[in-house]
Amino acid sequence: MVENYNIKEKGYHPFVIKEGWQLAKLNYTKEQHIDNITQLDVHLETDELFILIAGKAVLIAATIIDNEPHFEVEKLMLNIIYNIPKGVWHNIAMEEGSEIFIAEKSNTHISDFKHLALSNSKKEELHNLVNTQLKLSIVNER
């Protein structure tokens, strides 16, 4: 009667898909390292909840003004629920060994997403923002 899941493979894995909702796990991959973030995603039909359960990660959100993303970054704290409302561009920068649970509308990974490629200057801006956020938060933890 009790189902048990232990997702260890790298990457994004929806593992409980029920009527109307799904739970997924995102385990660190090289593509999620800040040096390799090349795009933002948006969902038009669902909010997306994130819970960091291991490691370090930064949630990236952006508004688009004059076709350019304007970033907001937030270091995720362990076991805190973070929500990205539908219609908000986002991504996650993670350090190796990080693990995140994601809750969202069912089948979001199949049909409810758009991507926005980042220019080289925006990738550099984002890289600097995330690295500053991680350094500041590491100093504050001491």
Rank of each mutant, 00 (worst) to 15 (best):
A62Y: 03
I17G: 02
K86W: 12
I102L: 04
I100H: 07
T29K: 04
H127C: 14
H115E: 15
N79G: 07
P69H: 03
K122S: 14
E72S: 15
D41A: 09
I65W: 05
K18S: 06
V88T: 10
A103P: 01
G87Y: 11
H115Q: 13
K75G: 08
N131Q: 14
F50L: 05
I65C: 02
T38Y: 00
K122V: 04
S121F: 07
S106F: 10
L26Q: 02
H33C: 00
N131K: 14
L136Y: 02
N83P: 05
I37L: 10
N27W: 01
H33E: 13
T38A: 03
I81F: 09
L116P: 03
Q39V: 05
Y28D: 04
S106I: 01
A62F: 10
N67P: 09
W89P: 10
V139Y: 06
L129M: 15
N91V: 11
N27M: 00
L116R: 11
K123G: 01
V73I: 11
K18M: 06
E74Y: 08
E141Y: 07
D41K: 13
F113R: 13
I110K: 15
K75I: 11
A117K: 15
V42H: 00
S98Y: 04
H109G: 05
N120Q: 12
E72D: 14
S137F: 00
A93M: 06
K114E: 15
S111L: 14
H43K: 02
N83Y: 09
E141N: 15
Q39S: 12
D112R: 07
V42E: 04
I80C: 08
W89E: 08
A57I: 08
E68P: 06
D112P: 09
K114N: 13
I60W: 01
K86H: 11
V58P: 01
L49A: 03
F71T: 02
I81N: 11
